[in-house]
Amino acid sequence: METRRITLLAGHYGSGKTNIAVNFALYLAGQGKQVTLADMDIVNPYYRAKDSAAEMEKAGVKMIASLYANSNVDVPALPQEMYAVTEDKARYAVLDVGGDDRGALALGRYAPEILKENDFHMIYVFNASRPLSRRAEDALEIMKEIEVAGGVPFTAIVNNTNLGKETTWETVTASMEEANKLSQISGLPLLFTAVEESVLPINERENEQYFPLKLQKTIW
């Protein structure tokens, strides 16, 4: 897969940006790259990239997250070291942007440097099972709102259609038509389709079209 120095994951909230960001950081680290995972979410109170902090450390991925992520307060602040994402060009960076246009607002601060360097993939995470962004047309509208708020144009799409623990291979294959339609009307390539690893059929594991996801286990 073609990778660029900075990979940004943005989209409708609940589309699965964080899971993709975590897995993509691991994927890059697995190729021997120096990787930073940056949690830029200033909206979501729970289920953050920081939940995977131990796993990231084990894989040698550097994590940048708000001091207040997973804490007991709502402080939409990003740490100073977030600037390292654009300044330290020796490392690959995966940016977990907050959901919707509101979540992408924080990206604006870093957008000029990202555009200047021009070695990024701004990825829209599409999930056809999410009620307000099921159709390609609705997703395209959200994409435009995010671009205005974040100041970084999208360059690619990832299909992450899933139904949580009830996801089947059928859920994924049934979504391909809408994902391709989004690719067509946005004029952007579909980079890959993310599939939870136990759902991905054995005969598709070598198929680069699919990106296997490892998900955090819950205690309920």
Binding site: G14, R130, R134, N162, L163
Partner: peptide, 8 residues
Amino acid sequence: KILMKGNE
């Protein structure tokens, strides 16, 4: 079936 947050 669709995927939703409890709040939604």
